[in-house]
Write a protein that binds this DNA or RNA. Sequence first.
DNA 1: AATAATGTAACTTCATAAGTATCATGATCG
DNA 2: CGATCATGATACTTATGAAGTTACATTATT
Lengths: 143, 143
Amino acid sequence: MRNDSRLSRMLHVLLHMARHDGPMTSEAIGAMLGTNPVVVRRTMAGLRDAGYVRSDKGHGGGWIIACDLERVSLLDVHRAVGGPRIFAIGNEHASPDCAVEQAVNAAVGDALRDAEALLVARLGAVSLAELGRGFDARCAPGP
Amino acid sequence: MRNDSRLSRMLHVLLHMARHDGPMTSEAIGAMLGTNPVVVRRTMAGLRDAGYVRSDKGHGGGWIIACDLERVSLLDVHRAVGGPRIFAIGNEHASPDCAVEQAVNAAVGDALRDAEALLVARLGAVSLAELGRGFDARCAPGP
DNA sequence: AATAATGTAACTTCATAAGTATCATGATCG
DNA sequence: CGATCATGATACTTATGAAGTTACATTATT
């Protein structure tokens, strides 16, 4: 399967929503992401359950931010979309009988765990608000 | 897809081969890994191309170690099996037009890059020989 | 020549995000 | 009220790639 891009897509959407007045429809968001409204609703359902966005039905409805962007990290968004599997590689058996395999699993597993810990720390250290400010700086790097 | 366990499996096999006199057949290795000989041959082809093992056909044939285990790292093995994709998550577009998406990609991409760099460093720092010694220590932790 | 091994090609299976089609549900506007 | 516009939910298909499987060719030993 191609990469799981839910985190990336949701960050993209959230930043757009933050700079947008009023609700955005799944249709509009889908156009932005290059996908269709059903995928948008499916993915954003996790953000809604976490309380980061709200959705309203009917005329004038759509999605709006429902949280303080300073208090939600990229890691929070990752988890809200299901906290999907991070690695495409891993051990074959979780608890092998073979002692050699146990030693291999320990070595590979430790390395993966440390890499995951670093990733989690990095994602947890950046808020959506900071990400937005990073965008501003990138676009208007005045002297 | 399930995890790509080629690295893990090959380390398992190499350690067994190191502690085994004479060639091991794909059949025997397959039994060890809980898979069939064709998968073994397919996966080990990369190790052979890298010069880490040798395969011999015919009666008495099979696979044997063809390298100095002190000089081959877990990272070398990872690369020999194809250096497969490490992450299951990632950005949607490599070079998006949207500036917001660019900012998101930069943030997520940096975090992933750093995590990958750590993993590569960790795998590169351990030789097959060290991994084997780790196994010995685990099995005979004398006083 | 028989046997035992690898090499290779072609196919199926499995897991999962993404994409699609369809209809039910609910809110707003006239 | 009734039309319209939005989400919610279900069911299905597509795409991807490792792993698994089947079958057969090739080569080396006995």
